[in-house]
């Protein structure tokens, strides 16, 4: 298979994912499962066919990487949804997966944009997908924490929301740490350091530390408001890690400038 086949296979997959999202919102869970799996299978078939077609692992160009992003985001999002039954997990991940598929259809000239040798690694896709999943999940946690803060201010904290918050932060932190661990292993393979305090790495550490503090504060009764305020704060730090490192004076010369 070649990219030409992608334009025939991607739209049905995107439509299936969209239908799955619609179904899960209407609580038709069986149908949602079927549609979701259908979309993931179409992607799997294309990836296998394309792999055979190009006669090498399709992990070299940006377009090929986006292919894996779509696949892993939808698959991991679906598994997380099956485990936790949070319907927005499915909606979120299928939306993200569709965005990457659509970029590949609309901007075919970006397929062949070169990946520099250091980026050509099997760590690339898990590293980036884990971070993308964690960022989206932690975004949900942040919104929930703001809702809870508002409820505390009006004197009626929602105890179910606490449990939801804790779980969601554990899941998000799990993906965040997977991104960090794959990043460290990759850095060792590419440059010989696990961690060189590159600005992006420093900020990834800051973000992880902030979420770790939240988790540990929750284990022993600390001031509830301060504990909850850690979450919006951590998310601000996360946004700086993601987008802001290119603007910081300390970040000139980062190895992550391309990201």
């Amino acid at each position: 298979m070649t990219w030409a086949h992608f334009n025939w296979l991607a739209p049905p997959a995107i439509i299936l994912w969209f239908l799955a999202s619609l179904m899960v919102m209407r609580r038709k869970n069986k149908l949602a499962d079927m549609f979701m799996i259908g979309g993931i299978l179409i992607f799997a078939v294309f990836i296998v066919g394309f792999w055979i077609g190009v006669q090498r692992p399709p992990m070299r160009t940006m377009g090929e990487t986006r292919l894996w992003h779509s696949f892993f985001l939808s698959a991991a999002g679906f598994l997380a949804y099956k485990r936790w039954k949070y319907s927005w997990l499915l909606v979120f991940s299928s939306l993200l997966a569709s965005v990457f598929a659509i970029i590949n259809m609309l901007k075919p000239e970006m397929h062949s944009i070169a990946l520099m040798p250091a980026l050509q690694s099997y760590y690339f896709v898990p590293h980036v997908t884990a971070y993308m999943l964690s960022y989206s999940i932690l975004a949900v946690g942040t919104i929930a924490s703001l809702i809870q803060l508002k409820k505390i201010n009006s004197g009626k904290p929602d105890f179910n929301l606490y449990a939801f918050l804790d779980n969601i932060i554990y899941i998000g932190l799990g993906f965040l740490m997977l991104g960090l661990i794959t990043g460290a292993a990759w850095a060792k393979e590419a440059w010989g350091h696990y961690w060189s305090w590159d600005p992006k790495e420093t900020w990834a550490f800051i973000t992880a530390a902030a979420y770790l503090i939240y988790i540990h504060l929750r284990l022993r009764e600390a001031n509830r408001k301060i504990t909850l305020l850690m979450l919006p704060l951590a998310f601000v730090l996360l946004m700086i890690t993601w987008l802001g490192t290119s603007f910081l004076p300390s970040a000139s010369g980062s190895v992550h400038v391309y990201s």
């Binding site: 997380a80 485990r83 936790w84 449990a163 804790d166 779980n167 554990y170 899941i171 932190l173 799990g174 993906f175 740490m177 997977l178 661990i181 929750r218």
Partner: peptide, 10 residues
């Protein structure tokens, strides 16, 4: 352990 957090939650 990170996978455990994802599967187990708190």
């Amino acid at each position: 352990g990170a996978l455990g957090l994802i599967v187990q939650g708190k």
